[in-house]
Simulated assay, not measured.
Amino acid sequence: MTTAPAASRRRRSLPRWVWISIVAAALVIILAVIAAIGWTVTTGLSLLNAEPPGVGTTIVAPAESKASLAAESASEGTEEFAAAAYLAAAPTAYWLTPELDPIGDVGARVLNLANEARDQDAALAVVIYGLPERDCGQYSAGGLDDADYDTWTTEIGSALSSAGAADIQKIIILEPDSLALAPQCDNVNARMTQLHDAVDRLAGTNTWIYLDGGHSNWLPASEMASLIQQVDVSDAIRGFATNVSNYQPTYAEFEYAHQISDALGGSHAIVDTSRNGADQAESDWCNPSGQLIGAAGGAYGDDVVDTNLWVKPPGESDGECNGGPVAGAWWPESAVELTTNVVQ
């Protein structure tokens, strides 16, 4: 049998420059994997250690706000422009309603707001306002039926929990007036189910949910606490929000929040100070005259009140009362009056 020469049987070695290229490419891949793992671990730890809102919290000033849109259309140099521009720059919660952000669109809106919050190094605060029989047939009447409300809030929750919003602190004010109005509207049981299920759909990492807490000049604290307790979501929410869309003094709201918290065994609160700067609200809640914007968000807080925020956007009407347009519509005259203490 003829055998091949030894030289032809020997495995040929790759040139040295090829081995160097292979090793270099492998190192690049390894470093990329390590970087990706490190980012994931760091992000995961930051979310696990996410803190609730507190004094110093800044929320996004949405480009989609009605104040911002009004500033774009107002004539520069006018008092209407000055008021709208001031309010457009103020960190304020964005109200998600099915009328403006319907099913199929609301998720994209949430992600856009999250991007704005990231760009501004701010938290995202949204008010969810679309449950069935909203406002009990009053000025803000509307909302969705039960099936569509489920779909709508599921879309919101999915967007809030998606990668596009995962790194943002998210604050949810869930359905203002829904609990405080329930006894008057005789729909307490329906409200409990609607809010309980909505919380399930909205809860997520670094998401802080606050239920309707009325305000200090409405229901007694014990009754308000009982309504909150009946929603039966204490493990999934941060607490309750008071003075939303109202004008009660900050000191009265802090006292009220403490009373509710004590009745609940230690819950937390957000206080809306967007329009309580005049400190003279009393019982008139629908476009009362002589009001002023209140303290900027993140200014106050204690062991019960996480902080104050601007929840109701100043300049938007409470309804067709005291000369105002429909609820939620931009009202230039109101914006001017509310900002007379800060805009010359």
Results as ranks from 00 to 15, higher is better:
A50Y: 02
E51P: 01
I59D: 00
A25E: 00
V41L: 15
I59M: 03
A32Q: 10
L31F: 14
A32L: 14
N49F: 13
W39E: 07
V28K: 00
V60Y: 01
L47G: 08
I59Y: 02
L47C: 00
N49P: 00
A32F: 12
I34K: 01
I34E: 07
K66M: 10
A61I: 09
A26F: 06
T43G: 11
E51R: 14
N49A: 14
V28M: 06
L48A: 12
A26W: 02
K66C: 02
L69M: 10
V41C: 06
A32K: 02
A25H: 00
I30W: 07
A35N: 10
S46Q: 15
I37W: 07
L27I: 11
I29W: 05
A50T: 03
A32N: 10
L69H: 12
I59S: 01
V55L: 04
G44L: 09
A67P: 04
I59V: 14
T40F: 12
A35E: 04
I59L: 08
A32G: 15
V41D: 12
A67G: 05
N49D: 12
L45N: 10
K66S: 09
V55C: 03
P53I: 03
A25P: 00
L27A: 14
V33K: 03
A36R: 13
G56Y: 08
V28L: 11
A50R: 07
G56C: 05
L45D: 08
I30T: 14
G54L: 00
L27V: 11
S46P: 06
L31M: 13
T40I: 07
P53V: 02
P62Q: 03
V33S: 06
P52T: 03
S65I: 03
G54R: 11
L45I: 15
T42V: 13
